[in-house]
Design a protein around this nucleic acid. Structure first.
Lengths: 198, 198
DNA sequence: AGGTGATTAACGGTCGTTCATTCATTTATT
DNA sequence: AATAAATGAATGAACGACCGTTAATCACCT
């Protein structure tokens, strides 16, 4: 699918609207207007609104997984660097282009058919496996404390995901600086590094 | 407003439905059915659906602020303890009673009138001030590294807020254990406490 | 002439909300 | 105390708007 055949261009408009207004609020008429046609014409390319949503979510997950997939079977390098890279990559996608402050995934999964939801959830699980693998590696390397990998992964992903709700690039901090901040926060925590800790 | 006059009982049903299905999906007919009356009767107690939403959100914010308000002007005690207490309190509310996996605030603010949105946002800002104050105090006490208070506050709130999306009490970890985990993660980070750090 | 992309118009359904009305209970008047 | 008036809770029915979707039709290109 080339990036400028009608189907792909409709997807672009739909994606922007879903992120901006939410899946339930954005209407087929909105999408048609943004693309420049009448609503009925969209059905020459997609069979239902839900199919559009599915394509949007699948593309998003692919963009998320592609740059970090290789971390799954790379035991050699420093887990701290791997984690920083993962954070930076996820954050870049999360804050790329104006997506405005909606968390599409949270709400939209309910609107997918069971089989399609299963497919998206499987990709999300893949992401979870990757981040947990990096954490486990750090523990094995003796660089991370023996924390719960699942909980820790959730914490990191949560911080990144919610940046969309409050981050505005104009206000002082850049995306790269924010990525650096999160990495430092995750790795070193809040307390001053006294020898005894707490 | 007593807790079992019609208005309060309707609010309870509406709150449960808003959290479960989302504001847009839950209908007045749903609320009426849950309460046990016909939709039109609700308008004897609330003038619009949006007013119901506003009451739900306001109550929620009050429950969030009440237990942590006192931290705003308590410079005496250890900021680490204050932060742990704030995390525990917020997490308890966030995971109290079955709210199911929707993040109501994210999506529902758009459906409020400007003046009502302003009121809710003001309460959210109050929460932000409290958590940033605790962080600043920790820095002044020399117990926290000199981090950006705003970013750090966002990170902590994000971790707590998103627990609603994935936390299930049955699966191993209790709410209190999770609060303890988050506090430790925030304070000490992921890395082993080597003297040199990184 | 045949086929493809786009349009017009409409369908059935659901939404928030309104309105006239009923019924039970309370309050006021004699 | 008996009766009339007022009040509040609840209902059934409907309105207008908008939703996703479909069917019939039209314009254009090879």
């Amino acid at each position: 699918m080339s990036r400028n055949d009608p189907k792909a261009r409709m997807l672009d408009k739909a994606r922007a609207l879903f992120w901006k207004k939410g899946y339930g609020v954005a209407t087929m008429r909105d999408i048609a207007r943004a693309y420049g046609c009448k609503p009925s014409n969209i059905y020459n390319y997609f069979s239902t609104k839900e199919e559009i949503l599915f394509e949007v979510l699948r593309e998003e997950m692919e963009h998320l997984l592609r740059p970090i997939r290789h971390l799954e079977h790379e035991s050699g390098s420093d887990a701290r660097d791997q984690l920083s890279q993962l954070i930076r990559s996820h954050l870049r996608l999360n804050l790329s282009y104006r997506r405005s402050g909606k968390l599409l995934f949270d709400v939209a999964l309910d609107h997918l058919s069971p089989s399609r939801r299963k497919e998206i959830v499987a990709m999300r699980d893949h992401y979870d496996r990757i981040i947990r693998g990096v954490i486990r590696r750090g523990i094995e390397q003796g660089r991370f404390r023996p924390v719960d990998e699942k909980l820790t992964g959730m914490m990191i992903a949560s911080m990144i995901t919610r940046t969309r709700m409050w981050f505005h690039p104009k206000k002082g901090v850049s995306v790269e600086e924010l990525a650096e901040f999160i990495s430092d926060f995750v790795l070193n925590g809040l307390c001053v590094p006294t020898g005894s800790g707490r």
